[in-house]
Design a protein around this nucleic acid. Structure first.
Lengths: 233, 233
DNA sequence: ATCATTATTATGTATATACATATTATGTCA
DNA sequence: TGACATAATATGTATATACATAATAATGAT
């Protein structure tokens, strides 16, 4: 290890991660405080602090003022998924992206949609259904409801060259979102659209986005059962 | 906003997040550099830098040396899931946790397991199957294969009071992991164990953990189709 | 014009210092 | 002993400064 490397917070973080992984620092155990570590690594306390904070954010350390820093006993490791827009996701995997608009109309939504968005039941919403394909094979069926009060300009968009997904990303801000993942069975319609058997398994992602006090959209994105969501820790 | 609040990197981060969300800073647009922002917010450049770095990690900003900082055009927002051990997950939801050991023996694993772990096909592995219950209802079926070379001491563990999951967490270090989520259909055995119908949908989490050059364990965790994995952005 | 070299610039990191804050440990009084 | 105020301590954050690094822009030679 060079002198420079030894002093960088990356290197210090890696070294501390090693000590945790190899049980040099035992689970639940108190580790030396920042000042001591700074002396050991020959760097400033701020440098050690940064490394420690990043490890704590990753869930392998638990820090408390005055009490000190401990190795997490039950590591609630956080898994981070990058959620790109679907076109990018397909292209990243080397697929050729295509998009097909299935329907696009203003209508009343099902009860469940109003409930999930916390909207008055009376209002009409924009309902856009589209299919995203990878190498001409169905990849994701997108069933979206948009609150017209939040994004009035979307009403007259045709979506012939851009998917509602990308339109919203570039035209509508949002500050908060909730994402739900679960498994389900394809109903007759979904099976036909995704070209899978009825009652085959499907991977469903639901997403709610909203500004404070203003729900924007509810999307249900349905993947064939062969879909895999992968992450590394 | 108080003077103190205005100078904290939290407040600065929040204010900048607001500008991004409300399109004060347009998608794809260049934002002022750190020095300018530091003057605007009346703080040191390091403080602005911290706020900007956190937003960049969140995916809403893209930073490049010399080129400056832009609002992400296609926000690859990262979703962060905290993955606690299953007992904690159940207890956090207010359920009463129980655990049932289904089987525990040393045997040859299926081809697929050796492949996933990159292990020599000849070796015997520890195979532990267990069921995690929430309020006496099946919550997760855990089907685990452990590389005995990596964790020899597990061979004689009985798992009568602790689940293999928790045993490994407290006894075996790991440095890397791969997690895969997908949907599937319950086969006859899984259906019986989880108390769902055969060919009902199930939510499957697969997890590989390993130390550098040393695979440790492969687990397949199967939830009933009603399972939901939720996160907020 | 093309390519390689050099300068410029914005971000990235390290440091010493100072003070804030949360939490624990200690001490005092009743 | 118990309640409560007080001290001690580890982490959290802000700052000025300095230099490193990556990427672009400008320059010059061919």
């Amino acid at each position: 290890m060079t002198a420079a490397a030894r002093k960088s917070f990356h290197a210090i973080k890696a070294e501390m991660a090693r000590r945790i992984a190899e049980r040099v620092w035992a689970p639940g155990g108190l580790i030396p405080n920042e000042e001591v570590l700074a002396i050991e690594f020959g760097c400033a306390r701020a440098t050690v602090n940064r490394a420690l904070q990043e490890l704590a954010r990753g869930g392998v350390l638990v820090r408390k003022r005055k009490a000190g820093t401990r190795v997490a006993l039950h590591p609630m490791r956080e898994a981070r998924f990058v959620i790109p827009i679907v076109r990018q996701e397909i292209e990243n995997k080397g697929g050729i992206y295509q998009f097909r608009l299935l329907s696009n109309q203003v209508e009343r939504a099902p009860q469940t949609v109003y409930e999930r968005l916390g909207l008055a039941k009376s209002k009409e919403m924009l309902h856009v259904r589209s299919l995203h394909l990878s190498d001409s094979k169905p990849y994701q069926y997108e069933d979206r409801w948009v609150n017209l009060d939040a994004v009035p300009s979307i009403r007259h968009e045709t979506f012939d060259s851009i998917s509602p997904n990308e339109w919203l990303v570039t035209h509508s801000p949002f500050s908060q979102a909730e994402i739900v993942f679960h498994a389900g069975l394809a109903d007759r319609e979904e099976a036909a659209i995704l070209d899978v058997g009825e009652k085959d398994s499907v991977f469903i992602i639901e997403r709610l986005t909203y500004l404070p006090q203003k729900p924007i959209t509810y999307v249900r994105m349905i993947h064939p059962g062969s879909h895999r969501m992968v992450t590394q820790l």
